[in-house]
């Protein structure tokens, strides 16, 4: 606990520096309002319900997009590793899609599905699916031959073997792919909401900024940053729990 406090001490120093440079007038308070004002605005946004309403809208989109990406991406990656036709069909598509900046798809998904939830979920799904697919593919390919054979000789069907052996073998790499996807989902969520949306945290940042409510805008930016951090930390704990079987000392 003490070491954790010590670890985040630089953040406290940063917060103090932020407050000071703004209070002492070293930077204009519209470019960087004092942290205390930002926190006050945050509290007001919370009381108004602006933060929770837009927050839930964003979390719903991010969560749905990510969930779809994980389910479809994992299935696709494993299918590509274990079934040649799937590999022949999808490998070139994944390769082309991989380096594409996914934010370029924002207008495309809007044309397809409009300004609401659908376009955001589709965007996050498409963008996040790639790292999940690649993780599942690499993990599934590395599953040990003798484990597969053992399961088969104990009476597991081919499909059963994919579920019982290949999926858990792929799990370490799959979980890493999902972690990348989680970070990507926040990027895609906020940028798509900034550009075209009527609600959501990204929309709120854009709206408040355009109206000159900079303390409130900073308050939402900090909220997004904290949500991203908390999601990654929570996910890391989940990952450690999932992989507790891995090499450990007696």
């Amino acid at each position: 606990m003490k070491s954790a406090l010590l670890r985040y001490l630089p953040l406290l120093l940063l917060a103090i520096a932020w407050e000071l440079v703004s209070r002492l007038g070293l930077v204009s308070s519209s470019a960087l309002p004092p942290l205390s004002d930002v926190l006050k605005s945050w509290y007001e946004l919370l009381l108004d319900g602006d933060l929770t309403g837009n927050g839930f809208a964003s979390l719903y989109r991010g969560g749905m997009g990510l969930l779809l990406a994980v389910v479809v991406g994992a299935a696709l990656g494993i299918a590509m590793a274990w079934w040649k036709p799937a590999n022949v069909l999808f490998a070139p598509i994944v390769e082309i899609f991989y380096p594409l900046p996914k934010s370029a798809l924002i207008p495309v998904t809007v044309i397809w599905l409009g300004f609401g939830n659908g376009s955001k979920i589709l965007l996050i799904f498409l963008g996040c699916m790639i790292p999940v697919t690649i993780g599942a593919f690499n993990g599934a390919r590395s599953s040990e031959q003798t484990l597969v054979w053992s399961a088969r000789s104990m009476g597991a069907s081919r499909l059963r073997m994919l579920w019982d052996v290949v999926l858990p073998s792929a799990m370490p790499e799959l979980l890493n792919g999902i972690r990348t996807a989680l970070a990507l989902s926040f990027i895609l969520l906020v940028s798509s909401e900034l550009i075209v949306a009527r609600e959501g945290l990204g929309y709120l940042i854009g709206f408040l900024g355009a109206n000159g409510s900079y303390d409130a805008m900073y308050a939402v930016v900090l909220t997004v940053a904290f949500l991203g951090f908390a999601a990654d930390r929570g996910y890391q704990m989940f990952m450690n729990w999932m992989l507790q079987w891995r090499e450990q000392t007696q």
């Binding site: 003798t146 484990l147 054979w149 053992s150 088969r152 000789s153 104990m154 009476g155 052996v165 858990p168």
Partner: peptide
């Protein structure tokens, strides 16, 4: 493969 023939490998092949 089938459960009439069980196998034990050099490197154990435990899950």
């Amino acid at each position: 493969p089938g459960p009439d023939r069980g196998i034990v490998f050099q490197h154990f092949a435990l899950f």
